[in-house]
Design a protein around this nucleic acid. Sequence first.
DNA 1: GTGGTCTAGACCACC
DNA 2: GTGGTCTAGACCACG
Lengths: 141, 141, 141, 141
Amino acid sequence: MFFSIDPSDGVAIYDQIVRQVKFAIAEGTLRPGQLLPSVRQLSQQLAINPNTIARAYQQLQSDGVIETWRGRGLAVCAGATERCQELRRALITERLRFVLAEALHGGLQAGEIRAMVDRELGSLAGRVATVASPPQVAGPG
Amino acid sequence: MFFSIDPSDGVAIYDQIVRQVKFAIAEGTLRPGQLLPSVRQLSQQLAINPNTIARAYQQLQSDGVIETWRGRGLAVCAGATERCQELRRALITERLRFVLAEALHGGLQAGEIRAMVDRELGSLAGRVATVASPPQVAGPG
Amino acid sequence: MFFSIDPSDGVAIYDQIVRQVKFAIAEGTLRPGQLLPSVRQLSQQLAINPNTIARAYQQLQSDGVIETWRGRGLAVCAGATERCQELRRALITERLRFVLAEALHGGLQAGEIRAMVDRELGSLAGRVATVASPPQVAGPG
Amino acid sequence: MFFSIDPSDGVAIYDQIVRQVKFAIAEGTLRPGQLLPSVRQLSQQLAINPNTIARAYQQLQSDGVIETWRGRGLAVCAGATERCQELRRALITERLRFVLAEALHGGLQAGEIRAMVDRELGSLAGRVATVASPPQVAGPG
DNA sequence: GTGGTCTAGACCACC
DNA sequence: GTGGTCTAGACCACG
């Protein structure tokens, strides 16, 4: 598991960790039953205050995504994969809806937005297609 | 010029003011050469500390959107309308691109995304088209 | 006598007037014994608060450049031409010395500075020789 | 990092700090990745209100020269050295051009100006050449 | 009346 | 500990 942390990002460091763990779980990189790196180990690896790591893990725990295995460490919960995927989808659709509303309010025409969406999907598709995500699908009606 | 401020919003008050002023300029509600409400006046109207208003205005000034007319007040700069429109469009397209990339990475299919975009545009178009000045877009919570 | 006033300039309006009057006197556009436009007249012409005009004239008076002629108005003092020219030269040499010192401190080489001076003098010489009244050059901020 | 602040200078305190930080970065005294003194620490050291320091730092941040490292402090951005050097050079050449134009308009001959430049460069060169870090240039009074 | 600046003291999230 | 934000009240120059 690799993390990329940017302290000068607007997002809090602990939150960056939380998101990346959830993303890795949703993706399947982290699977249920798998142990996470210890607080000390990760704090050293990322050169980040241990408190910050601990807080991220605490957040993940209260989100029901990881659990403590006494004496062994923190492990991904059963069912976490699906939960993270749902969570991620909900988050994304929410954001997409918000951005579209703002684009309309901001003066873009529906046609412009559709064109932009098509262009972006086209340019992104190639890159993303090779990633572990499920293959093609027949277009919906 | 009307403002709607929510102190409990995550966004700082001064930033809410900045955004709404830029939006009003982009829209044409505020035109170049027009004076903004004075710091004291607005601070009373919104029941907000004058320093907070001043900070918002300073931000707008350093953004090259308004300028001080000594002893008279702050006025919208020439060319601010176009600048704010560009700014808004750039911001929106940037966000849209980001959300789409995230959606693809998050496991949504291009077809699903297009369908969602169409659905949202359809449901939003009616409402937005007839609204004269939508000063604030509700956040995703 | 023409004035060009920029309310959004950092320099106070009254000071812009003071400078332009002194400049006109140094140039010979305004000669000793000549009457200045009245406060009311100038305030109307420039669409500026009469207080501001009055303050500028007061400043010029206390600088010994103009004087009241009872019942007639304000006139340029005898000897004001020379005084303004000296004043202007002193101001310029002072500034030149300051800018040169700063350029050296800022890392420019003496050779670079000399080259720049020659280049600027060359490109400016033609224009300046023929210009009648260069009323205002935007300050360096 | 040492600061010399003069509250009775025409320049605002926060602006004096901004300039000195930029100068130190341009010089190499402050390097990318280096942390600036904390707001509280500097406010104590200079006997200046923390808000004033914070304002200076915010200015530097919006100028893209420093960035906040959450919970750790403010650090010099990558590439800030070059940016500050360019900034400084641009500022200086701009001022030099302005002063030269004014000198020509004010009646000095090109020959006089060149002589003055040579004289000043000669008298300043010795002093400046040997100075390692001239943190402050005396103003014209 | 206007904005620009500074001080003083408080609360917050983050590390 | 760090910065970010807000409030309160003051003084200044300018018009």
